[in-house]
């Protein structure tokens, strides 16, 4: 017999002898139950992974071959060519402009609808707006861009519209959450002075959420600059358009230069936004 088992039995015995009969069985602490859904998921996903490898003909020789090709491609890209630096930089500027204008429109839309979507201010309307925003958000920016290109034609305008749409819908969620986190006491206090809804929103809620609004907007701008660089690939202008054109005509060194510009652009925006976040935290 195992020693642990022996002591367990001894414990059981001592209980039975020491306590009166009706207390003989101390209530057992309930065992944590395994969630059947979690167990199911733990089985399903590894199996599905293996099935997918088989189904998609994941070919290891192709992987080995492709990796070699990839390095060759990288080698051909260097050194980056500065021949058409001017159009590339202009396109980069356009990407930046698209991101900035699109995000700004999104922020403006979300600042209004974020309040209307907050259920502590507008219980019924809030749910409706949240639902619509959630739907708009599930469609990726790239898909919005494709739709707007059909609607208004190629160029930066569909890019701006796509970014504004998606940024707006995402920010409505962030903004309304910030508004809903405002202490109910603040709401009560301003209401108790006899203030109307507009005054409650501007004088009570806005000062409490404005820094969150700014932080979310900066965060969103950072994401949108990356987004707008890609949008060009589907024809919505900007540096992505340059990259996809160069790539199609196998202008590898030129592509490399454009990619480096994208890297510098996104990286410097990230640095800036990190600097901003640190500054905000210090206060």
């Amino acid at each position: 017999m195992k020693p642990e088992l022996a002591t367990e039995m001894a414990n059981d015995l001592s209980y039975e002898t020491a306590l009166p009969l009706h207390l003989a069985e101390p209530p057992q602490p309930s065992k944590p139950r395994r969630d059947p859904w979690l167990v199911g998921a733990a089985w399903f996903f590894p199996l599905f992974f293996i099935f997918s490898l088989w189904q998609l003909n994941f070919d290891y020789s192709q992987l080995a071959h492709g990796t070699g090709k990839m390095f060759q491609l990288f080698a051909q890209m260097f050194p980056p060519s500065l021949v058409d630096w001017r159009p590339v930089l202009e396109a980069a500027l356009q990407s930046l402009q698209v991101a900035l204008v699109g995000t700004a429109i999104g922020v403006a839309v979300a600042a209004v609808f974020g309040f209307l979507a907050a259920v502590n201010l507008f219980p019924r309307l809030g749910l409706l707006i949240k639902g619509v925003a959630a739907f708009v958000r599930t469609i990726p920016t790239l898909v919005w861009a494709l739709m707007f290109i059909v609607a208004v034609g190629m160029g930066p305008v569909p890019g701006i519209l796509a970014i504004a749409t998606h940024a707006g819908a995402s920010l409505i969620k962030m903004f309304s959450q910030s508004i809903e986190e405002v202490d109910e006491g603040v709401h009560e206090a301003i209401k108790a002075t006899g203030a109307g809804k507009l005054q409650i929103v501007f004088q009570g809620f806005l000062p409490c959420v404005i820094t969150y609004f700014i932080s979310w907007s900066v965060f969103r701008l950072e994401a949108d600059i990356g987004e707008s660089a890609i949008l060009g690939v589907v024809g919505a202008g900007g540096i992505g358009y340059q990259i996809s054109n160069n790539m199609r005509s196998y202008l590898l060194p030129e592509t490399c230069f454009a990619a480096l510009v994208v890297f510098v652009l996104v990286f410097s925006v990230e640095l800036l936004s990190n600097w901003y976040k640190n500054k905000m935290n210090l206060k």
């Binding site: 006491g185 603040v186 301003i190 002075t193 006899g194 507009l198 004088q203 409490c208």
Partner: peptide, 28 residues
């Protein structure tokens, strides 16, 4: 239940919100 991020004076002025017009009040 004060508005933490604004001045004391503004918090006191919130007591006048019921007496000023909606837009004037909203803009403070």
């Amino acid at each position: 239940n004060l508005i933490q991020r604004v001045s004391v004076l503004r918090n006191v002025l919130h007591g006048r919100l019921g007496y000023v017009g909606p837009v004037r009040g909203a803009l403070g």
